[in-house]
């Protein structure tokens, strides 16, 4: 399967597409926490690094199979998400944001001093197990599960928490439990993408998972539209492709990148898909067809 892709698609494009896939998984995780449940988390890269390091150390030093290491990394990240979630998710808004930043910093500094993780030099020599087809399969599975989750009772409960926490609680939703659950699932997905990332790049270092990385992931969710799954996917794709496309403006690349973000947020303050629901689009499409039919 992958051999076919390698033959027919330019390696440069293939690489970008794999990175898009990894970022989609990452952003869908954060979308669940920030977009759907409305809890501003600015430390998502921290969970990613836990997954990346766990998976990398397992395959490098303990000879664990890649899939096993991937799952172990994701579970490890989920465990920490759970651990951090319990005390911090009683906080709200800005306070939670600051706590998550602090947490991500702790993780980064931990890995800076962590001997098996190569300290500041980082880990090197992971085999490239992550392939395009694997990433795509995982992206599809994660997206489907996400859709399923958001349309379920739990998904509605998460939306309810975002819209009005007090009202949600009055309706009988255990808000803290739901928030911790969302946080754990978000961390799980971050850990998963971390494992994929480390086995795609073959090299990870603590500085890859700094504050800027967290902000980048948050950008994907906000740009795409908070809480919207297609939006998050589009946001992740745009923010991965854009810096590559802008290579032609060479030295002004980052300037253009920033300017485009500003323009986009001015014209679509709720994100690209923020106020569009797929359901509405379908409905509009159908009504239009009905109209043309009646006219002719």
């Amino acid at each position: 399967m992958d051999a076919w892709f390698m033959q027919h698609i330019d390696a440069y494009y293939l690489r970008i597409m794999v990175l898009i896939g990894i970022n989609i998984i990452l952003a869908l995780g954060l979308n669940l926490v920030t977009g759907v449940t409305g809890q501003l988390s600015m430390g998502h890269a921290g969970f990613m690094s836990i997954g990346a390091y766990t998976a990398a150390i397992l395959t490098l030093h303990y000879g664990v199979s890649f899939i096993g290491a991937l799952i172990a990394g994701a579970l490890m990240a989920a465990f920490f998400g759970f651990l951090i979630g319990i005390p911090t998710l009683r906080l709200e808004g800005d306070y939670l944001a600051i706590v998550t930043i602090g947490f991500a910093e702790i993780i980064r500094v931990f890995f800076l001093n962590f001997e098996p993780g190569g300290k500041a030099v980082g880990l090197y020599g992971m085999q490239q197990f992550t392939t395009f087809s694997l990433v795509m399969v995982i992206v599809i599975v994660v997206t489907l599960l996400n859709v399923k989750l958001l349309n379920s009772r739990y998904g509605r409960a998460l939306y309810a928490i975002r819209e009005n926490e007090i009202a949600a609680e009055a309706c009988g939703i255990n808000t803290t439990r739901m928030k911790v659950a969302a946080f754990t699932v978000g961390a799980f997905l971050a850990g998963l993408s971390g494992g994929l990332y480390s086995h795609y790049m073959g090299y990870i270092a603590p500085q890859d998972f700094g504050f800027m990385r967290s902000i980048e992931i948050l950008n994907m969710v906000v740009l795409g539209g908070m809480g919207s799954i297609p939006g998050t996917i589009i946001g992740a794709a745009i923010l991965t492709v854009l810096p590559e496309m802008l290579r032609i403006v060479a030295d002004y690349r980052l300037l253009f990148y920033g300017a485009l973000l500003v323009i986009l947020m001015i014209f679509r303050p709720n994100g690209i898909m923020g106020d569009i629901r797929v359901y509405d689009l379908r409905k509009r499409w159908q009504t239009k067809e009905v109209e043309t039919c009646s006219k002719s």
Binding site: D10, A11, Y12, R15, I16, L19, M201, E244, R247
Partner: peptide
């Protein structure tokens, strides 16, 4: 050919691939 890799490992990997394949 002079691309800027921002000192970022994901970036340099993309650039190296671009240099080689394109």
């Amino acid at each position: 050919i002079y691309e800027d890799n921002k000192g970022d490992s994901a970036e340099i990997a993309s650039i190296a691939t671009k240099y080689i394949t394109r």
